[in-house]
Design a binder for these strands. Sequence first.
DNA 1: GTACACACTTGACATGGATCAAATCGGACG
DNA 2: CGTCCGATTTGATCCATGTCAAGTGTGTAC
Lengths: 249, 249
Amino acid sequence: MAQAIPFRQASPLKASCHQCSLSNLCLPLAIEENDLDRLEDIVQQGRIFNRGEHIFDQSTPYRSCFAVKSGSIKTSIITESGEEQVTGFFMPGELVGLDSIGSEHYACTAKALERTSVCEFPVDKLEELTGKLPELQHHMYHLMSQEIQNSHQLAMLLSKNTAEERIAALLLSLSSRFQRRRMSPTNFSLPMARNDIANFLGLAVETVSRVFTRFQNQGIIKARGREVELLDIEALQMVSREFSRQGNN
Amino acid sequence: MAQAIPFRQASPLKASCHQCSLSNLCLPLAIEENDLDRLEDIVQQGRIFNRGEHIFDQSTPYRSCFAVKSGSIKTSIITESGEEQVTGFFMPGELVGLDSIGSEHYACTAKALERTSVCEFPVDKLEELTGKLPELQHHMYHLMSQEIQNSHQLAMLLSKNTAEERIAALLLSLSSRFQRRRMSPTNFSLPMARNDIANFLGLAVETVSRVFTRFQNQGIIKARGREVELLDIEALQMVSREFSRQGNN
DNA sequence: GTACACACTTGACATGGATCAAATCGGACG
DNA sequence: CGTCCGATTTGATCCATGTCAAGTGTGTAC
Protein backbone atom coordinates (compact mmCIF):
# COMPACT_ATOMS: atom_id res chain seq x y z
CA MET A 1 0.00 0.00 0.00
CA ALA A 2 1.24 3.42 -0.85
CA GLN A 3 0.73 5.25 2.40
CA ALA A 4 2.65 2.84 4.59
CA ILE A 5 4.42 5.91 5.90
CA PRO A 6 4.46 5.82 9.65
CA PHE A 7 3.24 8.91 11.39
CA ARG A 8 1.99 9.58 14.84
CA GLN A 9 -1.64 10.22 15.41
CA ALA A 10 -2.37 13.92 15.55
CA SER A 11 -4.18 15.14 18.58
CA PRO A 12 -7.74 15.96 17.61
CA LEU A 13 -7.33 19.73 17.81
CA LYS A 14 -3.72 20.55 17.21
CA ALA A 15 -1.16 18.85 15.05
CA SER A 16 2.18 18.21 16.58
CA CYS A 17 4.88 19.18 14.15
CA HIS A 18 7.44 18.35 16.80
CA GLN A 19 6.65 14.69 16.61
CA CYS A 20 5.69 14.37 12.97
CA SER A 21 7.86 11.94 11.07
CA LEU A 22 7.63 14.18 8.03
CA SER A 23 9.22 17.18 9.71
CA ASN A 24 12.35 16.75 7.64
CA LEU A 25 10.38 17.07 4.40
CA CYS A 26 7.63 19.48 5.28
CA LEU A 27 7.66 23.09 6.46
CA PRO A 28 9.25 22.35 9.85
CA LEU A 29 12.52 21.61 8.10
CA ALA A 30 13.03 25.34 7.69
CA ILE A 31 12.25 26.23 11.28
CA GLU A 32 14.36 26.15 14.40
CA GLU A 33 13.16 23.88 17.16
CA ASN A 34 12.41 26.98 19.23
CA ASP A 35 10.09 28.52 16.68
CA LEU A 36 8.28 25.34 15.82
CA ASP A 37 5.54 26.16 18.30
CA ARG A 38 4.59 29.15 16.24
CA LEU A 39 3.97 26.94 13.25
CA GLU A 40 1.97 24.56 15.38
CA ASP A 41 -0.15 27.46 16.51
CA ILE A 42 -1.39 28.15 13.04
CA VAL A 43 -1.62 24.67 11.55
CA GLN A 44 -4.98 22.97 11.72
CA GLN A 45 -5.21 19.35 12.60
CA GLY A 46 -5.14 16.68 9.98
CA ARG A 47 -8.48 16.28 8.36
CA ILE A 48 -9.09 13.03 6.56
CA PHE A 49 -10.38 12.77 3.01
CA ASN A 50 -11.62 9.63 1.34
CA ARG A 51 -10.58 8.69 -2.14
CA GLY A 52 -12.13 11.05 -4.65
CA GLU A 53 -13.00 13.78 -2.18
CA HIS A 54 -11.94 17.34 -2.97
CA ILE A 55 -9.56 19.12 -0.64
CA PHE A 56 -10.42 22.37 -2.39
CA ASP A 57 -12.02 23.47 -5.65
CA GLN A 58 -10.84 25.69 -8.45
CA SER A 59 -12.29 29.23 -8.35
CA THR A 60 -13.42 29.05 -4.73
CA PRO A 61 -11.93 31.67 -2.38
CA TYR A 62 -8.40 30.88 -1.40
CA ARG A 63 -7.96 30.14 2.27
CA SER A 64 -5.16 27.70 2.92
CA CYS A 65 -2.46 25.56 1.52
CA PHE A 66 -2.18 21.97 2.64
CA ALA A 67 0.60 19.57 3.49
CA VAL A 68 0.01 15.93 2.70
CA LYS A 69 0.38 13.87 5.85
CA SER A 70 -0.46 10.48 4.45
CA GLY A 71 -2.00 9.31 1.19
CA SER A 72 -1.70 11.32 -2.00
CA ILE A 73 -3.35 14.10 -3.93
CA LYS A 74 -3.70 15.13 -7.53
CA THR A 75 -4.25 18.68 -8.68
CA SER A 76 -5.82 19.68 -11.96
CA ILE A 77 -7.17 22.67 -13.78
CA ILE A 78 -10.38 22.63 -15.74
CA THR A 79 -11.10 24.89 -18.69
CA GLU A 80 -14.38 26.52 -19.62
CA SER A 81 -14.74 23.83 -22.24
CA GLY A 82 -14.61 21.25 -19.47
CA GLU A 83 -11.26 19.76 -20.35
CA GLU A 84 -9.10 18.67 -17.45
CA GLN A 85 -5.34 19.00 -17.17
CA VAL A 86 -3.65 17.21 -14.31
CA THR A 87 -0.94 19.54 -13.03
CA GLY A 88 0.67 17.46 -10.34
CA PHE A 89 0.73 14.57 -7.92
CA PHE A 90 1.59 15.18 -4.29
CA MET A 91 3.04 12.80 -1.73
CA PRO A 92 3.45 13.03 2.05
CA GLY A 93 5.43 16.08 3.13
CA GLU A 94 4.65 18.02 -0.04
CA LEU A 95 2.68 21.26 -0.09
CA VAL A 96 -0.45 21.62 -2.20
CA GLY A 97 -1.92 24.93 -3.25
CA LEU A 98 1.24 26.97 -3.76
CA ASP A 99 0.02 27.88 -7.22
CA SER A 100 -2.69 30.00 -5.67
CA ILE A 101 -0.90 31.75 -2.81
CA GLY A 102 -1.39 35.45 -3.15
CA SER A 103 -4.42 34.94 -5.36
CA GLU A 104 -8.05 35.47 -4.49
CA HIS A 105 -9.17 32.04 -5.64
CA TYR A 106 -7.80 28.56 -5.99
CA ALA A 107 -6.24 28.10 -9.41
CA CYS A 108 -6.81 24.36 -9.41
CA THR A 109 -8.76 21.58 -7.81
CA ALA A 110 -7.12 19.15 -5.39
CA LYS A 111 -8.51 15.66 -5.09
CA ALA A 112 -7.53 12.79 -2.82
CA LEU A 113 -6.27 9.81 -4.81
CA GLU A 114 -6.72 7.52 -1.83
CA ARG A 115 -7.61 7.92 1.82
CA THR A 116 -5.53 10.95 2.67
CA SER A 117 -4.86 13.12 5.69
CA VAL A 118 -3.61 16.68 5.43
CA CYS A 119 -2.45 19.54 7.59
CA GLU A 120 -3.97 22.90 6.79
CA PHE A 121 -2.09 26.21 6.84
CA PRO A 122 -4.38 29.24 6.59
CA VAL A 123 -2.59 31.69 4.30
CA ASP A 124 -3.23 34.86 6.21
CA LYS A 125 -1.57 33.38 9.26
CA LEU A 126 1.12 31.72 7.19
CA GLU A 127 2.04 34.98 5.50
CA GLU A 128 2.13 36.68 8.86
CA LEU A 129 4.46 34.01 10.17
CA THR A 130 6.78 34.06 7.17
CA GLY A 131 7.09 37.79 7.72
CA LYS A 132 8.55 37.02 11.13
CA LEU A 133 10.67 33.99 10.34
CA PRO A 134 13.11 34.74 7.53
CA GLU A 135 14.11 31.09 7.16
CA LEU A 136 10.51 30.10 6.71
CA GLN A 137 9.97 32.86 4.16
CA HIS A 138 13.07 31.74 2.32
CA HIS A 139 11.80 28.19 2.33
CA MET A 140 8.44 29.25 0.94
CA TYR A 141 10.20 31.05 -1.89
CA HIS A 142 12.24 27.95 -2.44
CA LEU A 143 9.21 25.67 -2.56
CA MET A 144 7.39 27.95 -4.95
CA SER A 145 10.35 28.28 -7.26
CA GLN A 146 10.71 24.50 -7.21
CA GLU A 147 7.11 24.32 -8.29
CA ILE A 148 7.85 26.64 -11.19
CA GLN A 149 10.86 24.58 -12.17
CA ASN A 150 8.89 21.35 -11.99
CA SER A 151 6.27 22.81 -14.21
CA HIS A 152 8.89 23.96 -16.70
CA GLN A 153 10.34 20.46 -16.68
CA LEU A 154 6.89 19.13 -17.41
CA ALA A 155 6.49 21.57 -20.27
CA MET A 156 9.80 20.41 -21.65
CA LEU A 157 8.77 16.79 -21.32
CA LEU A 158 5.53 17.52 -23.14
CA SER A 159 7.09 19.44 -25.94
CA LYS A 160 10.21 17.42 -26.65
CA ASN A 161 9.86 13.86 -25.46
CA THR A 162 8.24 10.72 -26.78
CA ALA A 163 5.61 8.74 -24.93
CA GLU A 164 8.23 6.27 -23.68
CA GLU A 165 10.48 9.03 -22.41
CA ARG A 166 7.66 10.76 -20.61
CA ILE A 167 6.53 7.63 -18.84
CA ALA A 168 10.06 6.62 -17.92
CA ALA A 169 10.59 10.08 -16.45
CA LEU A 170 7.43 9.83 -14.40
CA LEU A 171 8.33 6.41 -13.05
CA LEU A 172 11.77 7.66 -12.07
CA SER A 173 10.33 10.73 -10.40
CA LEU A 174 7.94 8.61 -8.37
CA SER A 175 10.73 6.21 -7.55
CA SER A 176 13.00 8.85 -6.10
CA ARG A 177 10.18 10.46 -4.20
CA PHE A 178 9.21 7.13 -2.66
CA GLN A 179 12.82 6.55 -1.76
CA ARG A 180 13.10 9.91 -0.03
CA ARG A 181 10.19 8.77 2.09
CA ARG A 182 11.91 5.59 3.12
CA MET A 183 9.88 3.37 0.89
CA SER A 184 11.14 1.03 -1.75
CA PRO A 185 12.27 2.91 -4.87
CA THR A 186 11.71 -0.17 -7.01
CA ASN A 187 8.55 -1.64 -5.63
CA PHE A 188 5.53 0.54 -5.16
CA SER A 189 1.95 0.95 -6.10
CA LEU A 190 0.91 3.85 -8.25
CA PRO A 191 -1.49 6.11 -6.41
CA MET A 192 -3.10 7.29 -9.64
CA ALA A 193 -5.04 5.66 -12.45
CA ARG A 194 -3.70 5.22 -15.98
CA ASN A 195 -6.08 7.94 -16.98
CA ASP A 196 -4.41 10.45 -14.67
CA ILE A 197 -0.99 9.47 -15.91
CA ALA A 198 -2.14 9.90 -19.49
CA ASN A 199 -3.68 13.27 -18.80
CA PHE A 200 -0.68 14.50 -16.84
CA LEU A 201 1.74 13.45 -19.58
CA GLY A 202 -0.37 14.65 -22.47
CA LEU A 203 -1.01 11.17 -23.86
CA ALA A 204 -3.99 8.96 -24.63
CA VAL A 205 -4.74 6.24 -22.08
CA GLU A 206 -4.17 3.62 -24.72
CA THR A 207 -0.67 4.90 -25.32
CA VAL A 208 0.17 4.73 -21.64
CA SER A 209 -1.08 1.19 -21.51
CA ARG A 210 0.91 0.19 -24.57
CA VAL A 211 4.12 1.69 -23.23
CA PHE A 212 3.68 -0.11 -19.93
CA THR A 213 3.38 -3.44 -21.70
CA ARG A 214 6.29 -2.57 -23.99
CA PHE A 215 8.49 -1.81 -20.98
CA GLN A 216 7.32 -5.05 -19.47
CA ASN A 217 8.19 -7.07 -22.53
CA GLN A 218 11.62 -5.49 -22.52
CA GLY A 219 12.07 -6.59 -18.93
CA ILE A 220 12.48 -3.04 -17.67
CA ILE A 221 9.51 -3.11 -15.35
CA LYS A 222 6.91 -5.48 -14.06
CA ALA A 223 3.42 -4.10 -13.74
CA ARG A 224 0.16 -5.65 -12.69
CA GLY A 225 -2.50 -3.00 -12.38
CA ARG A 226 -1.16 -0.30 -10.13
CA GLU A 227 1.53 -2.47 -8.61
CA VAL A 228 4.82 -1.66 -10.27
CA GLU A 229 8.28 -3.06 -9.94
CA LEU A 230 11.21 -1.31 -11.56
CA LEU A 231 13.50 -4.10 -12.67
CA ASP A 232 16.12 -2.03 -14.46
CA ILE A 233 16.39 1.55 -13.30
CA GLU A 234 19.39 2.27 -15.49
CA ALA A 235 17.46 1.23 -18.55
CA LEU A 236 14.71 3.61 -17.51
CA GLN A 237 17.25 6.39 -17.18
CA MET A 238 18.52 5.60 -20.63
CA VAL A 239 15.03 5.80 -22.07
CA SER A 240 14.40 9.07 -20.30
CA ARG A 241 17.64 10.68 -21.41
CA GLU A 242 16.48 13.65 -19.45
CA PHE A 243 16.98 12.29 -15.95
CA SER A 244 14.21 12.76 -13.47
CA ARG A 245 14.92 16.18 -12.19
CA GLN A 246 11.57 16.44 -10.54
CA GLY A 247 11.04 16.11 -6.83
CA ASN A 248 10.67 18.68 -4.18
CA ASN A 249 12.40 19.78 -1.03
CA MET B 1 9.55 49.04 -32.81
CA ALA B 2 8.67 47.02 -29.78
CA GLN B 3 10.17 49.07 -27.01
CA ALA B 4 8.48 52.32 -27.80
CA ILE B 5 7.59 52.42 -24.13
CA PRO B 6 8.46 55.80 -22.69
CA PHE B 7 10.51 55.74 -19.54
CA ARG B 8 12.65 58.30 -17.85
CA GLN B 9 16.34 57.94 -17.88
CA ALA B 10 17.58 56.30 -14.70
CA SER B 11 20.24 58.16 -12.82
CA PRO B 12 23.52 56.34 -13.29
CA LEU B 13 23.69 54.95 -9.76
CA LYS B 14 20.18 54.65 -8.46
CA ALA B 15 16.97 53.91 -10.25
CA SER B 16 14.02 56.09 -9.43
CA CYS B 17 11.00 53.91 -8.90
CA HIS B 18 9.04 57.01 -8.00
CA GLN B 19 9.24 58.32 -11.50
CA CYS B 20 9.23 55.10 -13.45
CA SER B 21 6.35 54.81 -15.86
CA LEU B 22 6.15 51.10 -15.13
CA SER B 23 5.49 51.52 -11.43
CA ASN B 24 1.92 50.36 -11.87
CA LEU B 25 3.08 47.05 -13.37
CA CYS B 26 6.27 46.36 -11.52
CA LEU B 27 7.06 45.80 -7.85
CA PRO B 28 6.23 49.38 -6.78
CA LEU B 29 2.56 48.65 -7.36
CA ALA B 30 2.54 46.73 -4.10
CA ILE B 31 4.26 49.41 -2.07
CA GLU B 32 2.96 52.52 -0.39
CA GLU B 33 4.44 55.78 -1.58
CA ASN B 34 6.12 56.14 1.81
CA ASP B 35 7.97 52.86 1.62
CA LEU B 36 9.04 53.22 -1.99
CA ASP B 37 12.37 54.63 -0.92
CA ARG B 38 13.23 51.35 0.70
CA LEU B 39 12.79 49.59 -2.60
CA GLU B 40 14.86 52.22 -4.34
CA ASP B 41 17.58 51.62 -1.81
CA ILE B 42 18.06 48.04 -2.87
CA VAL B 43 17.42 48.23 -6.59
CA GLN B 44 20.42 48.60 -8.83
CA GLN B 45 20.30 50.92 -11.74
CA GLY B 46 19.23 49.82 -15.16
CA ARG B 47 22.02 48.03 -16.91
CA ILE B 48 21.70 47.77 -20.66
CA PHE B 49 22.05 44.55 -22.61
CA ASN B 50 22.36 44.26 -26.34
CA ARG B 51 20.40 41.75 -28.32
CA GLY B 52 21.65 38.27 -27.60
CA GLU B 53 23.48 39.12 -24.40
CA HIS B 54 22.80 37.02 -21.33
CA ILE B 55 21.33 38.67 -18.25
CA PHE B 56 22.22 35.55 -16.28
CA ASP B 57 23.15 31.95 -16.97
CA GLN B 58 21.69 28.68 -15.83
CA SER B 59 23.64 26.99 -13.02
CA THR B 60 25.55 30.09 -12.00
CA PRO B 61 25.06 31.25 -8.38
CA TYR B 62 21.79 32.99 -7.85
CA ARG B 63 22.11 36.63 -6.96
CA SER B 64 19.23 38.72 -8.18
CA CYS B 65 15.99 38.83 -10.00
CA PHE B 66 15.44 41.43 -12.67
CA ALA B 67 12.62 43.65 -13.81
CA VAL B 68 12.47 44.44 -17.48
CA LYS B 69 12.55 48.20 -17.97
CA SER B 70 12.53 48.32 -21.73
CA GLY B 71 13.05 45.74 -24.42
CA SER B 72 12.30 42.08 -23.85
CA ILE B 73 13.84 38.89 -22.54
CA LYS B 74 13.46 35.20 -23.16
CA THR B 75 14.25 32.53 -20.59
CA SER B 76 15.13 28.96 -21.38
CA ILE B 77 16.44 25.84 -19.77
CA ILE B 78 19.05 23.62 -21.35
CA THR B 79 19.39 19.92 -20.70
CA GLU B 80 22.56 17.88 -20.42
CA SER B 81 21.89 16.70 -23.93
CA GLY B 82 22.03 20.32 -25.06
CA GLU B 83 18.39 20.70 -25.96
CA GLU B 84 16.83 24.05 -25.25
CA GLN B 85 13.35 24.71 -23.96
CA VAL B 86 12.14 28.29 -24.00
CA THR B 87 10.18 28.81 -20.78
CA GLY B 88 8.97 32.34 -21.17
CA PHE B 89 9.05 35.77 -22.76
CA PHE B 90 9.18 38.85 -20.57
CA MET B 91 8.05 42.36 -21.32
CA PRO B 92 8.58 45.68 -19.51
CA GLY B 93 7.38 45.59 -15.93
CA GLU B 94 7.67 41.82 -15.64
CA LEU B 95 10.02 40.06 -13.25
CA VAL B 96 12.58 37.56 -14.52
CA GLY B 97 14.23 34.96 -12.34
CA LEU B 98 11.38 34.09 -9.99
CA ASP B 99 11.87 30.44 -10.85
CA SER B 100 15.16 30.48 -8.98
CA ILE B 101 14.37 32.51 -5.88
CA GLY B 102 15.32 30.53 -2.85
CA SER B 103 17.63 28.32 -4.90
CA GLU B 104 21.41 28.30 -4.94
CA HIS B 105 21.70 28.63 -8.71
CA TYR B 106 19.77 30.05 -11.60
CA ALA B 107 17.39 27.46 -12.99
CA CYS B 108 17.38 29.01 -16.44
CA THR B 109 19.23 31.36 -18.74
CA ALA B 110 17.87 34.81 -19.54
CA LYS B 111 18.74 36.41 -22.85
CA ALA B 112 17.92 39.82 -24.25
CA LEU B 113 15.80 39.55 -27.38
CA GLU B 114 16.59 43.12 -28.33
CA ARG B 115 18.37 46.05 -26.75
CA THR B 116 17.04 45.79 -23.22
CA SER B 117 17.44 47.60 -19.93
CA VAL B 118 16.71 46.00 -16.59
CA CYS B 119 16.52 46.84 -12.91
CA GLU B 120 18.28 44.42 -10.62
CA PHE B 121 16.99 43.31 -7.23
CA PRO B 122 19.57 41.39 -5.17
CA VAL B 123 17.66 38.56 -3.50
CA ASP B 124 19.19 38.78 -0.07
CA LYS B 125 18.11 42.38 0.21
CA LEU B 126 14.79 41.70 -1.44
CA GLU B 127 13.99 38.90 0.99
CA GLU B 128 14.95 41.15 3.86
CA LEU B 129 12.63 43.82 2.57
CA THR B 130 9.70 41.50 1.96
CA GLY B 131 10.07 40.40 5.56
CA LYS B 132 9.37 43.96 6.58
CA LEU B 133 6.70 44.94 4.08
CA PRO B 134 3.80 42.48 4.20
CA GLU B 135 2.21 43.90 1.06
CA LEU B 136 5.41 43.39 -0.86
CA GLN B 137 5.74 39.85 0.44
CA HIS B 138 2.17 39.17 -0.55
CA HIS B 139 2.86 40.55 -3.98
CA MET B 140 5.91 38.35 -4.40
CA TYR B 141 3.83 35.30 -3.52
CA HIS B 142 1.27 36.49 -6.01
CA LEU B 143 3.81 36.92 -8.79
CA MET B 144 5.33 33.54 -8.14
CA SER B 145 1.99 31.78 -8.06
CA GLN B 146 1.11 33.55 -11.32
CA GLU B 147 4.28 32.13 -12.76
CA ILE B 148 3.23 28.64 -11.69
CA GLN B 149 -0.20 29.13 -13.19
CA ASN B 150 1.25 30.43 -16.44
CA SER B 151 3.45 27.41 -16.65
CA HIS B 152 0.51 25.11 -16.01
CA GLN B 153 -1.38 26.87 -18.75
CA LEU B 154 1.55 26.30 -21.04
CA ALA B 155 1.63 22.62 -20.12
CA MET B 156 -2.04 22.41 -20.92
CA LEU B 157 -1.52 24.14 -24.24
CA LEU B 158 1.27 21.73 -25.08
CA SER B 159 -0.60 18.63 -24.15
CA LYS B 160 -4.07 19.37 -25.46
CA ASN B 161 -3.99 21.92 -28.22
CA THR B 162 -3.23 21.89 -31.91
CA ALA B 163 -0.56 24.00 -33.55
CA GLU B 164 -3.13 26.58 -34.62
CA GLU B 165 -4.59 26.83 -31.14
CA ARG B 166 -1.20 27.25 -29.55
CA ILE B 167 -0.15 30.02 -31.89
CA ALA B 168 -3.48 31.80 -31.60
CA ALA B 169 -3.11 31.68 -27.80
CA LEU B 170 0.38 33.12 -27.96
CA LEU B 171 -0.66 35.94 -30.25
CA LEU B 172 -3.55 36.80 -27.94
CA SER B 173 -1.31 36.70 -24.91
CA LEU B 174 1.15 39.07 -26.53
CA SER B 175 -1.68 41.28 -27.68
CA SER B 176 -3.12 41.73 -24.23
CA ARG B 177 0.28 42.29 -22.71
CA PHE B 178 1.09 44.98 -25.28
CA GLN B 179 -2.25 46.57 -24.58
CA ARG B 180 -1.63 46.68 -20.85
CA ARG B 181 1.52 48.61 -21.70
CA ARG B 182 -0.38 51.19 -23.71
CA MET B 183 0.73 49.86 -27.04
CA SER B 184 -1.47 48.74 -29.87
CA PRO B 185 -3.00 45.33 -29.18
CA THR B 186 -3.44 44.71 -32.89
CA ASN B 187 -0.28 46.10 -34.38
CA PHE B 188 3.03 45.09 -32.99
CA SER B 189 6.32 43.54 -33.84
CA LEU B 190 7.22 40.19 -32.36
CA PRO B 191 10.29 40.49 -30.17
CA MET B 192 11.24 36.85 -30.79
CA ALA B 193 12.19 34.79 -33.81
CA ARG B 194 10.01 32.07 -35.31
CA ASN B 195 12.47 29.64 -33.86
CA ASP B 196 11.79 30.81 -30.33
CA ILE B 197 8.06 30.67 -30.87
CA ALA B 198 8.36 27.13 -32.18
CA ASN B 199 10.51 26.04 -29.28
CA PHE B 200 8.28 27.68 -26.71
CA LEU B 201 5.15 26.09 -28.15
CA GLY B 202 6.68 22.69 -28.76
CA LEU B 203 6.43 22.89 -32.54
CA ALA B 204 8.75 22.72 -35.51
CA VAL B 205 9.70 26.04 -37.06
CA GLU B 206 8.13 24.93 -40.29
CA THR B 207 4.81 24.37 -38.59
CA VAL B 208 4.86 27.85 -37.07
CA SER B 209 5.58 29.30 -40.45
CA ARG B 210 2.79 27.35 -42.08
CA VAL B 211 0.24 28.37 -39.46
CA PHE B 212 1.20 32.01 -39.87
CA THR B 213 0.57 31.86 -43.59
CA ARG B 214 -2.64 29.89 -43.05
CA PHE B 215 -3.91 32.57 -40.66
CA GLN B 216 -2.90 35.14 -43.19
CA ASN B 217 -4.75 33.44 -46.02
CA GLN B 218 -7.83 33.30 -43.81
CA GLY B 219 -7.56 37.02 -43.24
CA ILE B 220 -7.14 36.64 -39.49
CA ILE B 221 -3.74 38.27 -39.32
CA LYS B 222 -1.30 40.07 -41.52
CA ALA B 223 2.35 39.22 -41.01
CA ARG B 224 5.50 40.32 -42.71
CA GLY B 225 8.51 39.01 -40.88
CA ARG B 226 8.16 40.03 -37.29
CA GLU B 227 5.62 42.74 -37.96
CA VAL B 228 2.19 41.42 -37.13
CA GLU B 229 -1.26 42.87 -37.42
CA LEU B 230 -4.20 41.09 -35.82
CA LEU B 231 -7.08 41.69 -38.21
CA ASP B 232 -9.71 39.59 -36.48
CA ILE B 233 -9.17 39.09 -32.78
CA GLU B 234 -12.47 37.30 -32.31
CA ALA B 235 -11.49 34.75 -34.90
CA LEU B 236 -8.26 34.20 -33.01
CA GLN B 237 -10.21 33.67 -29.81
CA MET B 238 -12.37 31.15 -31.60
CA VAL B 239 -9.34 29.26 -32.79
CA SER B 240 -7.82 29.29 -29.34
CA ARG B 241 -10.95 28.07 -27.58
CA GLU B 242 -8.93 28.34 -24.42
CA PHE B 243 -8.82 32.11 -24.12
CA SER B 244 -5.52 33.72 -23.37
CA ARG B 245 -5.36 33.45 -19.64
CA GLN B 246 -1.70 34.29 -19.56
CA GLY B 247 -0.36 37.63 -18.55
CA ASN B 248 0.95 38.85 -15.26
CA ASN B 249 0.10 41.43 -12.65
C1' DG C 1 27.05 47.30 -53.97
C1' DT C 2 27.99 42.60 -53.13
C1' DA C 3 28.19 38.65 -50.45
C1' DC C 4 27.59 35.75 -46.77
C1' DA C 5 25.04 33.92 -43.03
C1' DC C 6 20.97 33.31 -41.11
C1' DA C 7 15.77 33.70 -40.77
C1' DC C 8 11.88 32.37 -42.93
C1' DT C 9 8.84 29.93 -46.25
C1' DT C 10 7.21 26.13 -49.05
C1' DG C 11 6.83 21.36 -50.68
C1' DA C 12 6.98 16.17 -50.32
C1' DC C 13 6.95 12.45 -47.47
C1' DA C 14 7.20 9.57 -43.08
C1' DT C 15 5.51 8.41 -38.56
C1' DG C 16 4.22 8.51 -33.58
C1' DG C 17 0.51 8.63 -31.29
C1' DA C 18 -4.63 9.71 -31.45
C1' DT C 19 -8.93 7.71 -32.36
C1' DC C 20 -12.30 4.17 -32.89
C1' DA C 21 -13.71 -0.39 -31.64
C1' DA C 22 -13.84 -4.33 -28.92
C1' DA C 23 -12.27 -7.62 -25.64
C1' DT C 24 -10.77 -8.61 -20.93
C1' DC C 25 -9.85 -7.65 -16.21
C1' DG C 26 -10.97 -6.40 -11.47
C1' DG C 27 -13.30 -4.85 -7.69
C1' DA C 28 -17.67 -3.43 -5.15
C1' DC C 29 -21.92 -4.99 -3.96
C1' DG C 30 -25.94 -7.66 -3.41
C1' DC D 1 -20.66 -16.44 -5.93
C1' DG D 2 -22.42 -13.96 -9.72
C1' DT D 3 -23.28 -9.38 -11.75
C1' DC D 4 -22.23 -5.03 -13.33
C1' DC D 5 -19.47 -1.04 -14.36
C1' DG D 6 -15.41 1.24 -14.81
C1' DA D 7 -10.41 0.50 -15.64
C1' DT D 8 -7.19 -1.50 -18.56
C1' DT D 9 -5.46 -3.77 -22.54
C1' DT D 10 -5.10 -4.84 -27.44
C1' DG D 11 -5.86 -4.22 -32.38
C1' DA D 12 -6.64 -1.54 -36.76
C1' DT D 13 -6.64 2.72 -39.00
C1' DC D 14 -5.88 7.73 -39.73
C1' DC D 15 -3.95 12.21 -39.42
C1' DA D 16 -1.40 16.26 -37.57
C1' DT D 17 2.88 17.41 -37.33
C1' DG D 18 7.81 16.25 -37.65
C1' DT D 19 11.59 15.67 -40.84
C1' DC D 20 14.15 16.33 -44.93
C1' DA D 21 15.12 19.16 -48.81
C1' DA D 22 14.99 23.42 -51.45
C1' DG D 23 14.31 27.64 -52.16
C1' DT D 24 13.58 32.78 -50.97
C1' DG D 25 14.07 36.72 -48.34
C1' DT D 26 16.75 40.02 -45.23
C1' DG D 27 20.15 42.34 -42.60
C1' DT D 28 25.00 43.17 -41.73
C1' DA D 29 29.89 43.58 -42.89
C1' DC D 30 33.20 44.69 -45.91
